[in-house]
């Protein structure tokens, strides 16, 4: 599939709404007018999924936008006001869970310990030994919401960093983005893996099926990436993501091999075994290390970001394991 043609490089369709608020946001974007949001009382979300989908649509305006939606809506003041309101709720939830967890650290190297000690549901052991082909495909569809824009949210942080942290983050991102070779760009490897599995690699193709937890995970990454004040959390999230990637990626690749699922998708996960064994060291020691050396007051935010990564992933794991074990 050539660059710029149909497929994952194309813009996406607005997803179907899942409640009052996502309905209004969708209508506003589709009509390129915020009139649907101007009614009184102000529309509120029916539930977590409605709120998460509305916020996800607002965030996507900052990535690739939607087919048929005026690109100027990205900076519409009414939409930004709504985004702020939804972000405040999301951040408050996150900080409440963080405070309850009691997670803390004296240095960035303790991110390794925090990741090691974090307990809870995990998907990779199940994927390794037990998952069926359909369960794997269900998960890959959900993962595509992030993996087709892999590494993009933390790229927002680059211009907000000092010299050493900036150079360190770009060194890692250069590898994530294929070292200059589009065929090695991680999002592209995932798209090729999806196509080889018979899935649609179009950006956003499976958002309508994504569980609340997956939309929230994506929203948390965008929240951290788009707010300069949360740059410490963005880098802490990156660090925990990398620290918890290498060993699970190997189990997932072996699970795919067990089911004889596409080599291209196995390649995506095998690439992450090796890449993330490097990236976890860079993210913790070099990137977060440089950030905290430059701005010691950001250590708590780094830890918040690391916790958020582990917490969101555990919620996703619990969602899928509950579903699959109930069906067994």
């Amino acid at each position: 599939m050539g660059a710029g043609g149909a497929g994952y490089g194309a813009t996406m369709q607005l997803p179907p709404p899942r409640g009052t608020l996502s309905h209004r946001v969708r209508d506003a974007l589709a009509g390129s007018s915020t009139r649907p949001l101007a009614s009184r009382p102000s529309p509120v979300a029916d539930d977590h999924h409605d709120a998460a989908l509305a916020l996800w649509m607002l965030y996507e305006l900052h990535y690739r936008g939607f087919d048929g939606v005026d690109d100027r809506m990205e900076w519409d003041a009414t939409l930004l006001g709504l985004r702020r309101h939804l972000e405040d709720d999301l951040e408050q939830d996150l900080r409440t869970r963080f405070a309850k967890s009691g997670t803390s650290a004296e240095s960035v190297e303790e991110i390794f310990r925090i990741c090691d000690e974090h307990e809870g549901a995990a998907l990779s052991p199940y994927l390794h030994r037990h998952a069926t082909r359909e369960q794997f495909l269900e998960l890959l569809r959900a993962r595509s919401v992030y993996h087709l824009k892999e590494s993009d949210p933390v790229s927002w942080a680059i211009p907000r960093l000092g010299t050493a942290a900036k150079a360190a983050l770009v060194e890692l991102q250069y590898d994530e983005y294929g070292g200059g070779d589009p065929n090695r760009l991680h999002a592209h490897l995932f798209a090729r893996g999806m196509a080889a599995c018979g899935l649609d690699p179009t950006y956003g193709a499976y958002v309508a099926q994504a569980p609340t937890e997956v939309l929230e995970q994506n929203n948390v990454m965008s929240l951290f990436g788009l707010h300069r004040r949360l740059r410490g959390a963005a880098l802490g999230h990156l660090a925990a993501f990398e620290v918890t990637s290498s060993l699970p990626s190997r189990r997932i690749a072996q699970g795919l091999d067990r089911l004889d699922l596409a080599d291209a998708m196995q390649h995506y996960y095998r690439e992450h075994v090796e890449a993330d064994a490097v990236h976890e060291q860079l993210a913790v020691r070099t990137i977060c290390g440089a950030l905290v050396a430059e701005s010691p007051e950001l250590l708590d935010d780094v830890v918040l970001g690391a916790f958020a990564c582990l917490d969101q992933e555990e919620r996703i794991a619990r969602h899928f394991l509950d579903r699959w074990e109930a069906a067994a």
Partner: peptide, 11 residues
Amino acid sequence: ETAPWCDGTHK
């Protein structure tokens, strides 16, 4: 398992 490269097994 990916010598000479690290695969995280040390952890």
